[in-house]
Design a protein around this nucleic acid. Structure first.
Length: 547
RNA sequence: GCCCCGUUGGUGAAGCGGUUAACACUCAAGAUUCUCAAUCUUGCAUACAUGGGUUCAAGUCCCAUACGGGGUACCA
């Protein structure tokens, strides 16, 4: 009885060899290849998006290939729609993979790109490992393993299946074969030759040169039941065969890197470059923690589309935590796309990446303010079609009017920045719509002047004797000043501050009365523009509503 | 428990042996032909976790301690 017999017993139907696969998936001649490898467990997570962005940008920087591989080896956690959601998320943010599999069809020659479809490939590699005596079936039950862990814990030892604790590694081939024939359930473990006391140099693109202990654990490479490989083994086979050159993954993987190194070395495969990215963290009170899907709504990508953030804002905010010098680069190169930015892994923050919604909001405001009104119109309409019937109706009623409202204080060197995301537009401009202005349960936000007779006096005098919708802005404001003088208000704030007792108030008070009377709000964009858009007729109607 | 990684002002962060320790935000004061969450100007900080080393010189290198994070699965 030899290892070969054992391998044959476990994998009787595997007749391909590793060489067959090497030929099937030839070298890509030095071309840079990155890959995003999400597990289909639900909505796309912000960490996944961040990861994808790094993959994407490394590929773009090097004229390389960006792949999407679905890691569905944990079928217990799988969620039906998740694969579709992953594609959608990548699509909406413009991160189109060069190679992927969708609805059973592969784009690219290195597929399948779904792990559950690669079983035969994994089995070929495992079979080889068994043949050369570097993998073996383990019959330990869950209870036995728990016991082992408790014992190790108790003795303050390193927990795990290694060295003398890896008892199945010492079973004879005969015993293994008998156990299998008896139908005992088993997993396949890798037989490690590493020495934990021995350190080796490991280069991580983010953290630099590290010294890690060699792996000595006989970790599981194939699960019982579904016979799928664990992550560690799938990583070896897939990233080797797909000729991945950069493995970009979260920092939580750093501690298992020694396992991967031993695996690659055992097969004599070239190690890819590793980019262990910092985790996205969040502050909660005094504690810092990983951002979590369950606790933090902003951890899920749908949060951003629901509120209506422009997609560039989301990408920008992620880019700023990917490389701290991104913002500076972007202000210097405002017209360039993020794809042109040269990513530098050593510039990633070494602790956690702090994801800040306030930062996103600032970026978003800025980005929206720089868009043309017509673009904001179209994008907000697109959002409204999915999320807000009432905004959709407002826009479609009269697109030109809506666009003109958005255009107030926009086409100027420093445009007004008040829209953070599209869902807030309605709250910002509702008063420009007569039906909403009349029906809204609104409060007039009068400030210094609250006496209703005085208010009416100001408004009547102004709109009857001074206001002319054809005036240009300077003339318009000069007339407001004239009104002030006529009614005993200071037309100049400095004069007022010098001798406040001489006046009833000043030009700011008068402007506020006009503003509140037609919008009900004390704080709005440029008053001249608003009056002009409303037009004399509608203004008069609105004034008549004041009681 | 054990193994990794990290710790610079209120916040995010530059700096990688010699700097007045950048920059941005927050905050405060002021400014503006009207309001403002917009814009501009000025200002604010008992910031290099602690203790030891190495060095002419240390956020910057080394060692300990504390604190934080990650890992320690037939999860990825």
């Amino acid at each position: 009885m030899t290892n070969k017999d054992l391998a044959e017993l476990i994998f009787p139907n595997i007749d391909k060899t590793i060489e067959d696969y090497e030929k099937m998936y030839p070298s890509r001649n030095g071309r840079v290849v990155t890959r995003i490898a999400p597990s289909p467990t639900g909505y796309m997570h912000i960490g996944g998006m961040y990861q994808s962005l790094v993959d994407y940008i490394i590929a773009k920087n090097n004229n390389g290939i960006f792949m999407l591989r679905i890691e569905d080896t944990d079928q217990k956690r799988e969620v039906e729609e998740a694969v579709k959601l992953i594609h959608e998320a990548l699509d909406t943010y413009g991160l189109h993979p060069d190679e992927f599999e969708r609805d059973g069809k592969c784009t690219g020659n290195y597929g399948p790109y779904v792990q559950s479809e690669r079983k035969e490939i994994y089995h070929t590699f495992i079979k080889h490992l068994i043949e050369i005596g570097r993998a073996y079936p383990c019959f330990c039950t869950k209870e036995e393993l728990d016991e082992l862990r408790v014992m190790q814990d108790h003795k303050k030892l390193r927990t795990g299946y290694y060295g003398k604790y890896a008892k199945c590694r010492n079973l004879s081939v005969e015993e293994m074969i008998n156990n299998i024939k008896e139908g005992k359930p088993y997993v396949i473990r890798f037989k490690s030759m590493g020495d934990f006391e021995h350190k080796f140099k490991f280069h991580d693109e983010v953290k630099g040169d590290l010294e890690l202990s060699e792996n000595d654990e006989d970790f599981v490479i194939m699960k019982s039941g579904d016979l799928l490989p664990t992550y560690h083994f799938a990583h070896l086979v897939d990233d080797h065969l797909m000729r991945t050159t950069y493995v970009i993954r979260g920092e939580e993987w750093l501690s298992s890197a020694p396992k991967h190194v031993e695996l690659f070395n055992t097969f004599g495969f070239e190690l890819p470059k590793y980019v262990h990215t910092p985790l996205i963290i969040k502050k909660e009170g005094n504690s810092i923690r990983k951002i979590s899907k369950r606790k933090d709504p902003e951890a899920t990508m749908s949060y951003y589309s629901d509120l209506g953030y422009p997609k560039e804002a989301v990408v920008e905010s992620l880019m700023t935590i990917i490389n701290s010098n991104y913002e500076e680069w972007h202000t210097q190169n405002p017209d360039k796309s993020f794809e042109e930015f040269t990513y530098n892994p050593t510039k990633m923050s070494s602790g956690g990446a702090y994801y800040d919604l306030e930062k996103l909001n600032n970026l978003s405001k800025d980005i929206i303010s720089k868009k043309k009104a017509s673009v904001v119109c179209e994008e907000s309409l697109e959002w409204a079609k999915k999320h807000s019937e009432s905004l959709k109706e407002m826009i479609e009623r009269d697109k030109d009017y809506y666009t003109s409202i958005l255009n107030i204080e926009r086409e100027q060197e420093k445009p007004r920045k008040d829209i953070v995301y599209y869902s807030m537009i309605e709250d910002l401009i509702w008063y420009m719509y007569d039906d909403k202005f009349k029906s809204k349960d609104k409060e007039y936000e009068w400030k210094n002047i609250t006496d209703i007779d005085e208010i009416k006096n100001i408004l009547n005098t102004y709109f009857n004797d001074y206001y002319d919708e054809n005036d240009d802005k300077d003339t318009w404001f000069n007339k407001v000043k004239e009104l002030c003088e006529k009614l005993g208000y200071a037309s100049n704030i400095k004069d007022y501050k010098k001798e406040p007792e001489k006046y009833k108030g000043n030009v700011a008070d008068i402007s506020t009365v006009i503003r509140v009377s037609v919008t009900s709000k004390s704080n709005t964009p440029d008053l001249y523009e608003i009056l002009k858009l409303l037009g004399t007729e509608r203004i008069k109607e609105r004034i008549s509503l004041i009681k």
